[in-house]
Nucleic acid binder design. Structure first.
Length: 407
RNA sequence: GCGACCGUAGCUCAAUUGGUUAGAGCGCCGGUUUGUGGUACCGGAGGUUGCGGGUUCAAUCCCCGUCGGUCGCCCCA
């Protein structure tokens, strides 16, 4: 195909799609400020080492799923596949421990070389919130509560369930992992091919295998609770109590895990079944081991990321804007109409005027553009307001606002 | 990376078991009618049926490849 087209897994967003996306981002920005999360922006590309180090050099993720390239100077760069590694790099590089506990939020594009599916793209977008430099469970609670409030205010909380788990501390995790390996190794014969692979590379992942045959094995696999140190148990307890006190409902998800060793304690996902196989709309957890493993000081941290596209698919279509159309009745009234247009805008009212066409044509255009009201500029100097949308109260409010400008 | 289904006008879709100039609605452009405001009607432009190859007298339709989409698997930082 010689015709030019967008790269696989990318999107051109316009109209309702763009409005939904915008609504998600605006809601996030409003809510994160309520929680005292400042904006942070890090580069869209980083040295490949930033992500390779955070993920472990050997994983498939690094070798197959990152957009990496050499720049003209021969440096290996990578389009960011996640926010956390870049933010951690910035934290270390800029000495942000002076601001700890640092509460930051970001949103923007991320890139992963994957096969596109519903709610999964090669260039996708996420919201992100992190608390860096706080070891207290209150940080976990605050971060999760922020996520819950974003979902509430987007009106999608009813479709979404918070799944909560703990991975314990390093000691807990290591003991549990060893017990899982022993358990599954003893049943190699019934384990699916995929899970036998996982047993070597990432045994915790067997717990969320979709293979029917693995289910029974998973059901009587060792539980993490049996290996929990008293400190780790107390931490998880504290998180759960904090969530209850915050009115955040959750379900325990014992098979919710994270693949990398730097994850500790809290792991959580806000999940929906309304989006097929890609049901996680927000996923996060505590990653106390990451910054240390990247060469920084040992720094506890907790955060989450949420898929903007997925949230945008769940939200109700945003209401159309209250744009006022100004229509000159006759060509001679064009200048007067332009003056009114300017006055409306300076008064803070969204308004527009067609570039061409007679009055009738401009009315047709206005109607097609979901205009809230039309103001006709008549030759006798009067202004006639015609409402197109809204209930009586909205119409009255808009009429009053317009009257204030026209007068 | 693997599998299934799909690809016709700007958009949403038609086109009898393969059959002659590939149609409609919406949108767009023009016109008539109407005329203080969501009118109706007429006309027009617009398609190498994703692309390439094959089978056939004949392909939108069957076969292969390729690109893209959708859904699932894998992966999920």
């Amino acid at each position: 195909m010689s015709k030019i087209q967008r790269p696989r897994g990318t999107q051109d967003m316009f109209g309702e799609t763009a409005a939904r996306f915008d609504h998600v981002v605006e809601t996030f920005n409003r809510v994160r400020k309520l929680y005292g999360f400042g904006r942070v922006d890090v580069p869209i590309f980083e040295s490949t080492a930033v992500f390779a180090r955070s993920l472990g050099e050997t994983t498939d993720v690094v070798s197959k799923e990152m957009y990496s390239f050499e720049d003209r100077g021969g440096d290996s760069l990578t389009l960011r596949p996640e926010f956390t590694a870049g933010i951690a790099r910035a934290y270390i590089e800029n000495g942000w421990q002076q601001h700890a506990p640092l509460k930051v939020a970001a949103w923007g594009p991320l890139f992963r070389y994957e096969r596109p599916q519903k709610g999964r793209f090669r260039q996708f977008h996420q919201l992100d919130a992190e608390v860096i430099g706080a070891a207290e469970p209150a940080a976990d609670v605050e971060v999760i509560a922020l996520g819950q409030q974003v979902l509430n205010e987007l009106g999608v909380a009813g479709d979404v369930t918070l799944q909560l788990n703990t991975l314990g501390d390093a000691e807990t995790r290591a003991a549990w992992r060893a017990a899982l390996v022993a358990h599954f190794s003893a049943h190699m014969d019934v384990l699916s091919a995929e899970s036998r692979e996982r047993l070597a590379k990432n045994p915790l992942r067997i717990l969320d295998s979709k293979a029917e045959g693995d289910r029974a094995l998973v059901a009587d696999a060792p539980r993490i609770d049996a290996f929990m140190t008293s400190e780790a148990g107390a931490f998880f307890d504290s998180v759960q109590k904090g969530l209850q006190a915050s009115g955040v409902a959750f379900v325990r998800a014992e098979s919710l895990v994270r693949g990398f060793d730097y994850y500790r304690h809290t792991a959580f996902e806000f999940v929906t079944d309304a989006l097929g196989a890609q049901g996680t709309v927000i996923g996060g957890g505590r990653y106390d081991g990451l910054i240390g493993s990247m060469g920084g000081p040992d720094t506890p941290a907790v955060g989450w990321a949420g898929g903007i596209e997925r949230l945008a698919m769940l939200v109700a279509a945003p209401a159309v804007g209250h744009v006022i159309a100004v229509v000159p009745d006759a060509p001679e009234m064009t200048e007067a109409a332009a003056a009114l247009l300017l006055a409306l805008r300076r008064a803070g009212l969204a308004a527009e005027m067609a570039y061409r066409g007679n009055a009738k044509r401009q009315v047709e255009i206005a109607r097609k553009r979901d205009t809230a009201a039309i103001v006709f500029v008549r030759a006798d100097g009067s202004r006639h307001v015609q409402h197109l949308t809204g209930d009586d109260a909205e119409r009255a409010a808009l009429a009053a606002a317009i009257a204030g400008v026209v007068a």
